[in-house]
Amino acid sequence: MQSSVVAGLRAVAPILVGVVPFGMIYGVVAVSQGLDRLPAILMSSIVFAGASQIAAAELWGQGAPWFIVVATGLVINLRFLMYSASLAPHMNDLQPWQRWLGSYLLTDQGYAVSVIRFQSPGEVHRFGFYLGASIALWSTWQASSLLGVVVGLQVPAAWGLEFSVPLMFLALLIPTLRTPTPVIVAIVSGAAALAFHTLPLHLGLIAAATTGLMVGAWRERFA
């Protein structure tokens, strides 16, 4: 199992470098929206989901009611439902504490590197690999968002550092486009996201992803 933990850590290492600016951006956004430092820092371990943390902090800063802030964050995090279902078959034989810990640690990047590894040939202790990748991501997220909170308002907005958020999602997206079906799904989903961009409550993301997945499901069934 230990070698699998290390393998997970190594697999996620190149992604960690991209998580650092993401976490720092969250920290900067959180304090610049008027969040106190302690809740801004602890949100990273209580919620532990970057995109939703950034969106929630921005909405709260704009004076949105608390239930809109929560609903928007949950809508953004609904994608974890699909990751959870996708990972569950790989985690059939786990102890309860491993399921609780694994659930808490579920992220885009940890999911991505784990699923890619589980689908590749060669033996691996799956929970060990997932744990190694996830704990590395968790630690990096805590440290970098803490750094962002401390640096706070001193980062000039003119640098456009928040652009590293879509760049990181892009770097994760491109490697999934190896066969025609995911390419079509990504094109449909991206186009739908443009069309649905003005939907309320950030529903555009889920509506667009669902549209892309429905086209993908149709292709898997009939094409």
Partner: peptide
């Protein structure tokens, strides 16, 4: 296909 759908909708 979920990662391709979700990540594209974010990017």
């Amino acid at each position: 296909l979920v990662p391709a759908a979700v990540l594209s909708a974010l990017v």
